[in-house]
Design a protein around this nucleic acid. Structure first.
Lengths: 133, 133
DNA sequence: CGGGATCCCCCGCGATACTG
DNA sequence: CAGTATCGCGGGGGATCCCG
């Protein structure tokens, strides 16, 4: 590694974009929202506002308790959500998106828009690819 | 932060969006571009036009031959790129984005924009989180 | 040159049990 | 209720060899 990254024509590269570098911000963003539970939690919190742990667990179907906690911790560390523990009996924990976390909703909205518009083409391509001799 | 009832995240309020369903188009899109090598290949091909296998391999630093081939096959199956084999000696294989594949570039551009704008905040949040007692 | 086939290792993730 | 701790496995992915 450490070899030259070939020169690239203009378009993406302005402002020093280098997706080929693992430390690139774009790559790190994909590492975050590419995590299915993270993106699902963001959408859930964005749609329904603050949620308790058990509410998130029930809304995000199929997530294990381990993965949910792990994802929420990662998001908290990244400043995407705030975790509020109420030391009552029993304990109550609420999660809500930060302002930063909310700015991810339009980004996910763009993904959604592309998916709804072009996924049929993807499905058609797959069918054609799989069904060919 | 309060519950700003008037505002809801754009793009999520209608059309029966159900990101909690694994079959949801949005989830499947994330499964695709969430793959680091897939997104890197899209950007590389988008920036530099058609590329040979070896050119892709050298530009996408750190990718193994197995993963590159596997990713390219997946993209071809999804109709994102076209694979052209020239049966010369030695063999020559070119990859280029389809029109469908090119429509993903703006989507990745949005990711890039968010990352460049907000990643410093994420870094700051991480530092604060990691350095706290 | 562009891969397919194989081996193998690592760890992500689920399941389970326990605690404040 | 909302976690932490521990074990176990399945498969994702790298390394290697080989072929058209």
């Amino acid at each position: 590694m450490g070899t030259t990254t070939a020169e690239r024509p203009s378009g993406f590269e302005h402002s020093g974009f280098d997706a080929f570098n693992a430390l690139c911000p774009s790559r790190r963003l994909l590492d975050t929202i590419g995590d299915k539970w993270v993106s699902l939690a963001i959408v859930a919190l964005g749609l329904r506002g603050p949620l308790r742990y058990s509410e998130l667990a029930s809304q995000i179907e199929g997530v294990s308790q381990k993965m949910l906690t792990q994802s929420l911790r990662k998001m908290e560390r990244d400043g995407l959500l705030i975790r509020t523990v109420t030391p009552s009996v029993p304990v109550r924990t609420d999660y809500e998106l930060t302002t930063l976390g909310q700015t991810l909703l339009p980004v996910l909205g763009h993904l959604k828009a592309w998916a709804e518009e072009h996924m049929p083409e993807v499905d058609a391509a797959r069918t054609a690819y799989d069904g060919r001799p």
